[in-house]
Nucleic acid binder design. Structure first.
Length: 515
RNA sequence: GCCCCCAUCGUCUAGCGGCCCAGGACAUGGCCCUCUCAAGGCCAAGACGGGGGUUCGAGUCCCCCUGGGGGCACCA
């Protein structure tokens, strides 16, 4: 039997980290067993659907490399993969259930039901709805269905215990008496999630239903539907929810905006985003995928992080290559308590993955950021690319995200932006400008103008002059880069070259703070 | 209110009765390295929610309590 899993987002908002993690588990399970991973769009709730939400979801999956074997844009043997296009199927199946006596029409209005629910609440009683036509004989029920616009409800069998083995939770059970007769098809003919899901999972031959724990309470209803359809159950696995950093509440796509903190805004501003752009992008925040893509996180790092969130390979592995993850993934090793999303650990992983990335790919990843910042031309020539490469090498492990290139390497591509504090601390001090001016004359003749010889000559110079190397080094750094942090000084000078280095030193010495 | 689930360092986790006075990782603090910032190395601090059982022995099994979470729609 081939394993078939699915992820079924509803396009009512943007995918968050938790949703992606659930999708990843589905994907891993399918890949591990050489099965299929299906993407299905659960969009039966047309009023709440937002067509513009679909593309970002698909793009997110593509970016992460979570390929789907069947679904939007790729089709498949059970197309269409949009529930909104399968309503006829659900209606047909629901009618069959009525005919078989497992379901019945319901004429209650929304107002009546609301009143019932409120009354139950007021009486502090659980609300368990049983329709008035529940016990109508099947042929009469069909007659009602044909003559009136009626919703269809499942007739929940009374007095039973539903027990099943969840792959992650273990044995779980429910009393059917406590389950109200659920709506299968709305009065307007549109199926409801619980029903459409079962019909589709059955038709699409889904073998493993891996979904978030918030769906656990939907499971008894769905089990009842499977039974009514005389179908065998898939394997159920309810993965714990992902909670917000700092709270124990599950991540929700409704208020992702609250993750747009001042710090997040500052980061995005640094990349050239305006507040208007940030505010118009709902998924551009630390709970969404787009944020990490924009900042230049490596997708492999995100996948690794998400895979380790609630799952472990063994007692110590943190960095787990995707093929290892696929080879060893199992639902049995999925943890069963909620996991809190930790941006710090993700950031650390991003750095680890960046370190492992081949140089060429680092250069390729960094170029778009330099282009967008207007530091290099859109189609950089070979010389520029060679220079970018040298800068990337100089940045070394400082580069954790592609966007870090702007943090550590921008000054290689434009004049330094002199940080007043840095100038005050490292340049505008007694004797320093003179020292700098004097050493500049040494720099004029250093041969070759390379890191090693530069270092040697600076050491010699300081020794013969009896000055502290630190003073000169810091002064040089600020004079040539404008800031106090960055790659090794000698690497910086070498990349800048003799002429540019001298020009920058002269420029720095012209500053008003210095005389 | 009712139903269901969960419970190891701040966080992610290992642990499936003795290998655990609980291991790893992120974060934190200190030291080393060092031209800054990273990275790296070393060290430190830090957890089995509580109470009952079962057992020669319990983080591990059972029960209760407490705490947390999820769900109770003609939403998904």
């Amino acid at each position: 039997m081939t394993v078939r899993t699915r992820f079924a987002p509803s396009p009512t908002g943007f995918l968050h980290i938790g949703g992606v993690r659930t999708a990843l588990f589905n994907w891993l399970l399918a890949r591990k067993h050489g099965g299929q991973f299906i993407l299905r769009i659960d969009d039966t709730d047309v009023e709440r659907n937002r067509p513009e939400a679909l593309q970002p979801i698909l793009e997110g999956f593509r970016w992460l490399g979570l390929s789907w074997d069947e679904g939007p844009e790729v089709g498949g043997p059970y197309a269409p993969y949009f529930q909104s296009q399968r309503l006829e199927l659900y209606r047909r199946v629901a009618r069959q259930l009525v005919q078989a006596g497992h379901a019945y029409p319901c004429l209650a209005t929304k107002e009546e039901l609301d009143a019932e629910r409120r009354a139950a609440e007021a009486a502090r009683q659980p609300y368990i709805h049983r329709g008035r036509l529940r016990d109508l004989p099947a042929h009469e029920a069909m007659a009602v269905l044909d003559s009136r616009q009626a919703a269809i409800r499942l007739r929940v069998p009374l007095g039973q215990t539903l027990a099943l083995q969840d792959c992650i939770r273990g044995p779980v059970s429910w009393q059917t008496d406590l389950i109200g007769d659920p709506i299968l098809v709305r009065a307007d003919g549109r199926a409801v999630y619980n029903f459409a899901t079962v019909v589709d999972d059955l038709e699409m031959k889904i073998t493993h239903v891996v979904r978030a724990e918030e769906h656990l309470s939907n499971t008894p209803v769905q089990v009842l539907i499977y039974r009514a359809l005389n179908a065998s159950l898939p394997v159920f696995a309810h993965v714990p929810v992902v909670t917000e950093p700092g709270s124990r509440k599950k991540l929700s796509k409704r208020d992702m905006k609250k993750f747009v903190t001042a710090e997040v805004r500052a980061r995005l501003h640094a990349l050239g985003w305006t507040d208007e752009e940030i505010d118009s992008r709902e998924d551009l925040n630390p709970a969404g995928i787009a944020y990490y893509r924009e900042l230049g996180y490596l997708p492999a790092a995100l996948v690794n992080y998400l895979g380790r969130l609630g799952w472990s390979l063994d007692e110590k592995s943190e960095i787990i290559p995707l093929d290892t993850m696929i080879a060893h993934f199992s639902l049995e090793r999925v943890n069963n308590s909620p996991a809190s999303f930790d941006p710090d650990k993700l950031y650390w992983l991003a750095g680890e993955y960046m370190r492992m990335l081949p140089l060429d790919e680092k250069v390729n990843g960094v170029v778009p950021y330099l282009v967008r910042a207007g530091l290099i031309a859109e189609e950089p020539d070979a010389d520029t690319l060679a220079r970018v490469r040298r800068v990337v090498v100089a940045c070394g492990d400082r580069l954790k995200l592609f966007s870090d290139i702007l943090l550590y390497g921008a000054f290689f591509f434009r004049d330094p932006w002199y940080d007043p504090q840095a100038v005050a601390k490292r340049l505008a001090k007694d004797g320093i400008p003179t020292l700098l001016r004097d050493f500049a004359s040494v720099l004029r003749t250093v041969e070759p103008f390379a890191a090693q010889t530069l270092e040697a000559s600076l050491q010699d110079y300081c020794q013969s002059r009896g000055c502290k190397t630190g003073d000169l080094i810091h002064a040089l750094r600020v004079a040539t880069t404008g800031v106090t942090v960055g790659p090794g000084l000698y690497d910086c000078l070498e990349i800048l070259g003799r002429d540019e280095t001298l020009r920058r030193i002269a420029m720095a010495l012209q500053r008003p703070e210095i005389r």
